[in-house]
């Protein structure tokens, strides 16, 4: 390669590496601001500020959804299978909201560690499958539960 071109190529490479390091350090320093939400472990560890508008995200815990029969108020627990945070929300939930589904809630954390949300967004995962496959999978996993359940009763 021509020496001048080699020199130019080195300059370009230095530019790219320098930029990558600069941007990498900046985003690393700002990582808490870039995160869209706090997860339940962070909230229960006291990392999230109280009474400041923040977002909390995680899975809706199975069997935790309580709907108030007279109003649109809903209470549920958001979990990351490590810690869970109770959430209170009044309003219409997105279609994909269900137990076992991911959500991101926006609101404030009160002193009792309860999250009062004013907006709930559904978060879905990267898995797509036809309804029949989903049904079959669910049946299979339920069958397994039953099998293990009956095994337990036998052993008791």
């Amino acid at each position: 390669m021509h020496p001048i071109r080699k020199k130019r190529l080195t300059i370009v490479l230095f530019l790219l590496v320098g930029l990558a390091i600069a941007v990498g350090l900046t985003t690393y320093a700002l990582r808490q601001n870039i995160n869209l939400f706090y997860d339940p472990t962070q909230i229960s560890a006291g990392e999230a500020p109280v009474d400041v508008r923040i977002r909390a995200g995680g899975m809706v815990e199975e069997g935790s959804v309580l709907r108030d029969p007279d109003s649109l108020m809903v209470e549920f627990k958001v979990t990351d299978f490590n810690a869970s945070v109770p959430v209170q929300y009044t309003g219409i939930l997105p279609d994909l909201f269900a137990e076992g589904q991911g959500v991101v809630a926006m609101g404030r954390l009160d002193e009792n560690g309860r999250f009062v949300a004013d907006q709930v967004l559904a978060k879905h995962d990267e898995n797509y499958m036809p309804p029949e496959v989903a049904d079959a999978l669910e049946k299979a996993s339920k069958g397994q539960h039953k099998a293990s359940g009956s095994a337990e009763t036998v052993s008791y």
Partner: peptide, 8 residues
């Protein structure tokens, strides 16, 4: 790298 609403 970060918590996002967008799925992986």
């Amino acid at each position: 790298w970060w918590n996002t609403l967008h799925q992986p």
